[in-house]
């Protein structure tokens, strides 16, 4: 190829990549702007503090109530429950695959786990209705099993492939020299894993967990199907909950255009946006703290 063509291609690609990069920024900025703009219309009617701390969500009542605390608590409860289940399982599985499993078993486990990520959320939600829900109802003698625990279990299953895959990559990427150093001073495999490998892989593991949290907070269909959607203040894992995502999904289709209720759903979405943003920032903070020891 001629030198001039090569040079102009170089310049052209530089701009193409710059544009794609800026497009991502523009998309993010656009989404945020749309959410905030519509939320403002809502906050003209309802005070932000009343919205966040209000104990009742009943936008279609005679006197509409726009308190989203039950929704925030529902999302938090389900996400928290999912992580309590998924984090130990996910990190344990990742450590097993990376350090203990024979190559043969590894070759079976990894694709199977990745296949789990390909199961559509509506199928998982379906399993929640016909399998997990009735199971919980039987075990805890409840009238039905459509509650926060059901949602948490299903979300844990959905977050697991992400957590396992990313955490396994992180554990696998720990330099062999660290492990040799640990074995060299007489450490067992387990001591090496707990005290050297997992701490060294911590940034990646935290990133894995944060991705899992993001998945759980944002997941809609599964929780919509499995948690019963009662917009009351939840008191425990056995209560029916209505998460923020489910609220938007259920009510957006039926709400009259550009009413307070319509704008309220945008306001929920804005809060959701900031919740995931905070989750990511917290993750980033921890990642940087651990990175300090890695960079020479």
């Amino acid at each position: 190829m001629k030198f001039k063509t090569r040079l102009s291609l170089d310049v052209a690609f530089k701009y193409i990549f710059k544009i794609t990069g800026l497009l991502v920024l523009a998309a993010l900025g656009g989404i945020l702007a749309m959410l905030v703009y519509n939320s403002f219309s809502f906050f003209l009617d309802v005070k932000p503090l009343d919205f966040i701390t209000g104990l009742e969500w009943n936008p279609t009542g005679k006197t509409p109530k726009y308190g989203m605390l039950p929704l925030i608590l529902s999302t938090t409860l389900v996400t928290f429950g999912a992580m309590v289940i998924a984090i130990p399982l996910g990190i344990g599985t990742a450590a097993f695959i990376a350090e203990y499993a024979s190559p043969k078993l590894k070759n079976i486990l990894k694709p199977v786990i990745e296949m789990l990520a390909a199961v559509p959320s509506v199928v998982i939600g379906f399993l929640g209705i016909v399998l997990v829900g009735p199971g919980i109802a039987d075990l805890a003698s409840l009238p039905n099993g459509l509650n926060a625990l059901n949602g948490a279990i299903l979300l844990a299953v959905m977050a697991l492939p992400t957590i396992i895959t990313v955490a396994e990559d992180a554990i696998h990427a720990v330099p062999k020299t660290y492990k040799e150093a640990s074995y060299g001073v007489g450490a067992t495999k387990w001591q090496t894993l707990c005290r050297v490998v997992i701490p060294a892989a911590a940034p990646g593991i935290i990133a894995a967990v944060m991705l899992g949290v993001g998945r759980a907070i944002g997941e809609t269909m599964t929780v919509l199907m499995a948690t019963g959607n009662a917009s009351l203040l939840p008191e425990g894992m056995f209560d029916s909950v209505k998460t923020m995502t489910a609220t938007i999904a259920i009510e957006m289709g039926e709400v009259p255009y550009q009413t307070t209720h319509y704008f309220a759903l945008y306001a929920i979405a804005t809060v959701l946006f900031f919740m995931t943003l905070i989750a990511n920032l917290v993750g980033e903070f921890f990642i940087n703290r651990f990175r300090k020891y890695h960079a020479a």
């Binding site: 330099p175 020299t177 660290y178 040799e180 150093a181 640990s182 050297v196 060294a200 890695h294």
Partner: peptide, 10 residues
């Protein structure tokens, strides 16, 4: 043992 490349723990 002391290794070829210094390998302090992080």
């Amino acid at each position: 043992m002391v290794f070829q490349k210094a390998n302090p723990f992080p």
